[in-house]
């Protein structure tokens, strides 16, 4: 591919129906959505717990989560690399250079975002709801689903921020995935590779495809949010 216009390059890539590209896109989505799912399962209730509880060291934990939102992906990647390497503590699992390793790295990257943002949202809600919920016998762990559901519109931001960071990230997945053709090559690592090969138009074309995917997902989330807001009176 020596097309010099990135938009044409992107278009040609899409219409060619190239199975390699389809595989790369599918892997990117699989890795990113898996990481997002794990981060949400842990981060939403975790953030809510952090918002509602008071214990020594809580402040440090909150600061730590906030700071880790800025964790450089390369550092996260390197840490997971050393953890998963055969010479590392989880080496026997044989996970280095697999999509699972990439999922782990991205989970580490976006978990602090989900934790911090959901803590913020739930903290505001909890200060408003606390007396009423305790009066209704809805406190402690039982309050978490209630608070997450009532914060759902604000929590969409946490989900999208997590998705954005994971899907745009290249440093960590490159290190722990190895950018192996047909196995751990994602859109972002393919962009890095094509850039390295001097195929700048193709690299930018892949970038356009990634941006398109992100736009579609964000647009979908926005429309769903609008619809849900409009029908927020519906039984759930």
């Amino acid at each position: 591919m020596s097309e010099s216009n990135p938009f044409v390059a992107a278009w040609l890539l899409i219409v060619s129906g190239d199975p390699t590209l389809a595989g790369i896109v599918a892997l990117s989505l699989r890795v990113t959505l898996s990481a997002l799912a794990i981060a949400l399962v842990i981060g939403l209730p975790g953030g809510a717990f952090l918002a509602m509880s008071r214990f020594p060291g809580r402040g440090l934990l909150v600061i730590g989560c906030n700071a880790l939102m800025g964790l450089p992906p390369v550092v996260a990647g390197l840490a997971i690399y050393l953890l998963l390497s055969r010479a590392g503590p989880l080496g026997p699992l044989g996970l280095l250079f697999t999509p699972s390793a990439m999922v782990m790295a991205q989970t580490v990257l976006i978990l602090p975002i989900v934790l911090s943002l959901s803590r913020q949202v739930v903290e505001d809600l909890w200060s408003e709801y606390e007396e009423q919920l305790r009066s209704l016998g809805c406190s402690g762990a039982r309050a978490i689903p209630t608070l997450l559901w009532d914060g759902r519109f604000s929590l969409v931001t946490a989900v999208l921020a997590g998705f954005g960071r994971a899907s745009a990230e290249v440093g960590a997945v490159l290190i722990v995935g190895g950018n192996i053709a047909g196995h751990t090559r994602t859109i972002t690592t393919a962009i890095a590779l094509e850039t390295a090969k001097g195929e700048l138009a193709l690299a930018l074309g892949l970038g356009i495809i990634l941006l398109g995917l992100t736009l579609v997902l964000n647009g979908g989330a926005y429309l769903m949010g609008q619809y849900a807001r409009r029908s927020a009176g519906q039984p759930w």
Partner: peptide
């Protein structure tokens, strides 16, 4: 608090963000 045998209504109603 949370014993269903006694309930409380506040000056400013605290309602959840869902239908009545």
């Amino acid at each position: 608090a949370g014993d269903p045998r006694h309930a409380m209504v506040f000056q400013r109603p605290i309602l959840l963000r869902r239908s009545a």
